[in-house]
C-alpha cells in the first residue's frame, strides 16, 4: 500500500457522528504513520469505539473524511448515499478484531481465516490455505485449524479473529477492545500476539483499557472524552504526565477503581 509521499498511512479528519440526539463525535482527527501503533483510550461513551468503527465505515460519519493509503472518502458523501465501490475500496484497507470476536460459528478455524481471501478476494484456495495455516501458527494455533470456534477458549477465539483480520492482507489493523470480554488469565496471550504484530511493523489502531499495553507498545496515545480528542502524544506524556485534568481523573479511576 503506497501512500502519498511523506503522508501518514491513516488520515481521518473532522469526524462527526450523531445517534439521534446523542452527538458522539464532535470533530475527531486520527493520523497514523505506517508501522506505528495508536491507542485510543477514554471513558465509556467517549466515542473511541465509534472513531474506530468510522475508519472502516461500520459507522458512516456524518462529517469529515477518512483516508487509508490511496482510498479516501468524504462525508457527507456527495449525493447523499456513499458510493458502494468507494466503501468497498476503503474497507479493503483495514482488518478488524472485535471485542466479541464475531467468528463465524458455522466455519472451522481455517474456514474463518480463508473465507475473506477465497470468497471475496478470489485468490487461489491452495495458496490461501497455506498462508492461513502459517498465520494460525503465528498466533499460536497451529493444531486448531479443523476445530470449530466454540471448541476454543476465549483467548484462542480472539487470536483466530486476529488471523482472520490479517488474512485479507490489510494495510491497517483495527482492534476494538480485543481483551475486554476475556477472562483475566487469557488477556496476556492476546496482548502478546498484538505486541508481536507491532514488532513486525504492522500499523495498528487499538481501542483498549490495557494501560500496560499502551505504555509498552503504543507510539501514540489519544485520550478521548465527550466526542473530542482531549489530549494526545507519546504514551510517556499522555499516560505518564497528563496535562489535562480530565485525563488525570480518567487514569486515576482506572488505576484505583474504588
Amino acid at each position: 500500500m503506497s501512500t502519498p509521499a511523506g503522508g501518514p498511512l491513516l488520515e481521518a479528519r473532522g469526524l462527526e457522528k450523531s445517534f439521534g440526539d446523542n452527538h458522539v463525535l464532535r470533530g475527531v482527527d486520527v493520523l497514523a504513520d505506517a508501522g506505528t501503533v495508536t491507542v485510543l483510550i477514554g471513558p465509556s461513551g467517549s466515542g473511541k469505539t465509534t472513531v474506530l468503527r468510522s475508519l472502516n465505515l461500520l459507522e458512516v460519519p456524518d462529517a469529515g473524511s477518512v483516508r487509508i493509503g490511496q482510498a479516501r472518502m468524504e462525508f457527507p458523501a456527495p449525493g447523499g448515499r456513499p458510493d458502494r465501490r468507494a466503501v468497498a475500496r476503503l474497507r479493503a484497507q483495514s482488518g478488524m478484531v472485535f471485542q466479541a470476536h464475531n467468528l463465524f460459528p458455522h466455519l472451522t478455524v481455517l474456514g474463518n481465516v480463508t473465507e475473506g481471501p477465497v470468497v471475496v478476494q478470489r485468490r487461489p484456495p491452495a495458496e490461501v490455505r497455506a498462508e492461513a495455516l502459517a498465520l494460525l501458527e503465528r498466533v499460536g494455533l497451529a493444531g486448531k485449524a479443523e476445530q470449530y470456534p466454540h471448541q476454543l477458549s476465549g483467548g484462542q477465539q480472539q487470536r483466530v479473529g486476529i488471523a482472520r483480520a490479517l488474512a485479507i492482507r490489510p494495510a491497517l489493523l483495527l482492534f476494538d477492545e480485543p481483551t475486554s470480554a476475556l477472562d483475566p488469565e487469557l488477556v496476556g496471550e492476546v496482548l502478546a500476539v498484538m505486541k508481536d504484530l507491532a514488532d513486525q511493523g504492522w500499523t495498528m489502531v487499538v481501542v483498549t483499557h490495557e494501560m500496560r499495553f499502551a505504555r509498552q507498545v503504543a507510539d501514540r496515545v489519544l485520550f478521548l472524552d465527550g466526542g473530542v480528542v482531549v489530549e494526545e502524544g507519546a504514551p510517556a506524556e499522555v499516560l505518564g504526565a497528563p496535562r489535562h485534568e480530565r485525563t488525570r481523573r480518567f487514569l486515576h479511576r482506572l488505576a484505583d477503581p474504588l
Binding site: N56, L58, R84, A88, M96, F98, F104, V119, R164, A165
Partner: peptide, 19 residues
Amino acid sequence: GQTEAALTIGMDYATTMRR
C-alpha cells in the same frame, strides 16, 4: 456482529447473506 465481521473482510450484502 456476524454481518459486521463479514463486512470487514470485504463481503457485500449478497455474499454476506449467502455465506
